[in-house]
Design a binder for these strands. Structure first.
Length: 576
RNA sequence: UGGGGUGUCGUCAAGUGGUAAGACACGGGCCUUUGGAGCCCGUAUUCGGAGGUUCGAAUCCUCCCACCCCAGCCA
């Protein structure tokens, strides 16, 4: 397991475990488990659970199992187990040899069921699904006993064996726990514990045609594995009495179930169902699309495992429903990448800039710092010549106030190069738009400082036209326009709030030549722009493709945004 | 109108009877060859509300209010 990245803040689960340890409960053991169902890809919400379970075990000298909760063969697939293992490993956690499957326990679980029947605590019920629902009652009315509730132990044993033997059709019978049809907790109204499903299981094949339900599987699996603290999300709080009931009825080791609030993140959705829907309906190409809140999406986007772990530590663990600001996630990557990403110059929307007084065929190599946060990362040489590209945004013919980049007559610095002054522009004859800038440079400012001590307000990034490499850059933004897209109080479907500009692909970008052999997945800071990584799927030596992980904090953009909004309010524009 | 939960700054979140941590966001300043980073400062007289107990309450008691979850042979 990887070391935690920051000192742990107190939370109620940590407190419970600390107290259990103090009381020498479970002989001082701490054993947790992460129990995904292999029916989809892991997302950042699962990361919270992974960090919690593996983190707590590590912190208290215990261990954490990886256990696949694979009791519904109709939805589960091996490709999901593979992706889940890859993601947990990538996040930095190691389950060593403790890779388990609920399906490993099918035989034992079946024996437990038989034991319940023998104890008169379970029965085979022939009611249809609809009838079971009707008999269950409602939130305010008690249910009614099934007419099959009082079958003899012998008959139940016989019927249950024949269910297992495949004598009956799907849905024709179930095994139920005999608890209390009048319980105010619906989960206790004789819950189904085994159903008939003639389906092939990804691990057990056709060995079984009856499969245990979650409630009958989870606690017993925890018990078999000797789990001490079974941490799950809030919606299982109502199931805890049932979790306890089975363990008590079976008289086996009794782990403690503890519930916490699942993660909600602003401007995205966190439900496997909705994520799958975005893919199936073609809004997003796949689970690993960099806009997805999935672990694989974040990985492809350029997030580091460290940043995700730090994020999970920072958000805390509690029982109240909450919505974490995605800005905190973004802060976490910036913080990590600031320290480790090499800096590089890239021009996303190039405009040609000619330095009139610079010799035609001259090229000089200028020294640039790889990471000002870490001198150990050294320096590199970057080519400079007469014709450059700079960012279109870095020039304004009529500079607004507070804009202190390049403008006619104004002097700025080219990073690690020279001071330049804009002396003219070239326009497109048709459109009148500025297509080329002409500047002069001051040879005495080589490296970026003026010997006479004069200052300049702005430093621009640039690239030598002849030496730069072409690249495609994908600019990603929030998936949704609304902080909580699933808030359907106004009646709209969550997809209504999809951000049409969540992806902008720029195909005529120019990057400095040192990026020539950039490895897929490697991360850089494009100076003044943000953090980018080489796409692991589409980038190649012939065609470099970068994904924007996150922008740098941008106070200029903030000023523009505030002024734009003020303008809209002034004009009386109604904001949506 | 059954049961289970939860309400502390814009967003997370500590706090468990002794006088409201921290983070993000936000605002201001310093510094700066990234309008980045870093540094400094500011930001809840108040803890869903109302009563009560107490020398003292976010913490204890009472009532009320709001929100979330549960009627799959899903997990």
């Amino acid at each position: 397991m990887t070391a935690t990245d920051s000192s742990p803040a107190p939370n109620f689960i940590r407190n419970i475990i600390a107290e259990d340890l103090k009381a020498n409960k479970n002989e001082g053991r701490v054993h947790t488990r992460f129990p995904p169902e292999p029916n989809g890809y892991l997302h950042i919400g699962h990361a919270k659970s992974i960090c919690l379970n593996f983190g707590l075990a590590q912190e208290f000298g215990g261990v954490c199992n990886l256990r696949f909760d694979d009791t519904d063969p109709s939805k589960e697939e091996v490709k999901y187990v593979e992706s889940i293992k890859e993601d947990v490993r990538w996040l930095g956690f190691d389950w060593q040899d403790r890779e388990f499957y609920a399906s490993d326990y099918f035989e034992q679980l079946h024996e437990y069921a038989v034991q319940l029947i023998k104890d008169g605590k379970a029965y085979v019920c022939d009611l249809s699904a609809n009838e079971i629902r009707e008999y269950r009652g409602t939130l305010t009315e008690p249910g009614k006993n099934s007419p099959y509730r009082d079958r003899s132990v012998e008959e139940n044993l016989n019927l249950f064996e024949r269910m297992r033997a495949g004598e009956f059709k799907d849905g024709s019978r179930v095994l139920r726990a005999k608890i209390d049809m009048a319980s105010p907790n619906l989960n206790m109204r004789d819950p189904v514990i085994y159903r008939i499903l003639h389906a092939e299981h990804h691990r057990t094949g056709n060995t079984w045609c009856i499969y245990p339900m979650y409630d009958f599987t989870h606690g017993q699996s925890d018990s078999i594995e000797g789990i001490t603290h079974s941490i799950c999300t809030l919606e299982f709080e109502d199931h805890r009495p049932l979790y306890d009931w089975f363990l008590d009825a079976l008289k086996i080791f009794h782990p403690q179930q503890i519930e916490f609030a699942r993660l909600n993140l602003s401007y995205t959705v966190m439900s496997k169902r909705m994520l799958l829907q975005l893919i199936e309906e073609g809004y997003i190409p796949g689970w690993d699309d960099p806009r997805m809140p999935t672990i694989s999406g974040l990985r492809r986007r350029g997030y580091t495992p460290e940043s995700i772990r730090n994020f999970c530590e920072r958000i805390g663990v509690a029982k109240r429903d909450s919505m974490v600001d995605i800005a905190l996630l973004e802060h976490s990557v910036r913080e990590d990448l600031n320290k480790r990403a090499p800096r590089v110059m890239a021009v996303l929307r190039p405009i040609r800039l000619v330095i009139d007084n610079y010799p035609e065929n001259k090229m000089e190599e200028l020294e640039a710092v790889n990471n000002p946060e870490d001198p150990g990362m050294g320096t590199r040489k970057i080519p400079f010549s007469r014709v450059l590209y700079i960012e279109q945004d870095d020039f304004r013919e009529v500079p607004p106030k507070k804009f202190f980049r390049l403008a006619p007559g104004r002097e700025v610095r080219l990073r690690y190069a020279y001071f330049i002054k804009c002396v003219g522009v070239v326009r497109d004859e048709q459109t009148g738009e500025v297509v080329e800038l002409h500047c002069t440079y001051d040879p005495k400012t080589r490296g970026g400082d003026a010997p006479d001590g004069r200052k300049v307000r702005a430093t621009l990034h640039w690239v030598s036209a002849a030496h730069s490499l072409k690249a495609e850059v994908r600019l990603y933004d929030h998936l949704f326009l609304k902080a909580n897209p699933t808030d359907e109080k106004d009646g709209a479907d969550f997809k209504t709030y999809l951000n049409p500009d969540s992806l902008e692909t720029l195909t005529s970008c120019r990057v400095e030549p040192t990026l020539k052999d950039a490895a897929p997945g490697s991360r850089y800071q494009f100076e003044r722009l943000g953090y980018f990584c080489v796409d692991t799927v589409d980038s190649s030596n012939e065609k470099l493709v970068f994904n924007r992980t996150v922008t740098l904090r941008d106070t200029w953009a903030k000023i523009q945004k505030v002024e734009k909004e003020a303008m809209e309010v002034h004009k009386g524009v109604i904001k949506g």
